[in-house]
């Protein structure tokens, strides 16, 4: 009973916050609602027994991705009201595309029925004798090791691309070179002179 109550609570808050993401006037509020949506999605994963996925969702999306989102949105100095007004002219087109997708989905819903074999193929979210994390690791690093590594490489390429795109080499700027500072020797910077009184240093 508690589990189903929790399910309805998470789902309701998830859908409501998703609605607010697209309808909130202030973009910062949108991102905050997005974070709430991520959270509730993580809650749904926990209810499914997929606790590893749930917490990775929380760590990656809430802890990292949404922080950067919020960071950028807060820094941006764009009048979102103007942007909204401009985007209004695309609403008919958007409605047409959305309508087509909806009709397609409706066709699928009514014309499609699961095969008899499908019932037997439903896997449990977590294997009985193994914790979720171990199960995921075992399948990810054996059966799916190639796709896993390839997706890692793709992300690496994207990361390098982002660095290359934003790298600015500015000649003539002064930078702190820590290793130079550490390697300074006494002889390079300190000179001891005997000064006769009344003579001064040349």
């Amino acid at each position: 009973m508690i589990a189903s109550l929790a399910f309805y609570l998470f789902s309701f808050v998830l859908i409501m916050s998703a609605l607010f993401v697209i309808s909130a006037k202030n973009p910062v509020h949108s991102v905050l609602f997005l974070i709430l949506a991520f959270f509730n999605a993580a809650g749904l994963f926990v209810l499914l027994g997929a606790e590893f996925v749930a917490f990775i969702l929380a760590i990656v999306y809430v802890g990292a991705v949404a922080v950067l989102f919020l960071f950028v949105v807060m820094m941006l100095d764009v009048s979102f009201a103007d942007l909204r007004r401009e985007s209004m002219q695309y609403i008919p087109l958007g409605l047409v595309i959305g309508g087509i997708l909806l009709v397609e989905m409706a066709f699928m819903m009514f014309a499609w029925s699961p095969s008899m074999m499908a019932g037997g193929n439903i896997a449990a979210a977590a294997p009985k004798d193994l914790s979720n994390t171990h199960a995921l690791g075992q399948i990810l690093y054996t059966q799916y090791v190639l796709p896993f590594q390839v997706s890692g490489l793709i992300l690496l390429v994207a990361m390098i691309g982002a660095i290359v795109l934003t790298l600015r080499v500015r000649p003539g700027t002064l930078r702190q070179k820590i290793s130079d500072q550490v390697h300074v020797r006494r002889e390079d910077v300190v000179e001891v002179r005997k000064v006769q009184s009344g003579q001064g240093v040349e």
Binding site: F52, I56, S131
Partner: peptide, 10 residues
């Protein structure tokens, strides 16, 4: 819980 450290980190 099984994934306590992930919870803490999150």
């Amino acid at each position: 819980i099984n994934v306590g450290i992930l919870y803490l980190f999150a």
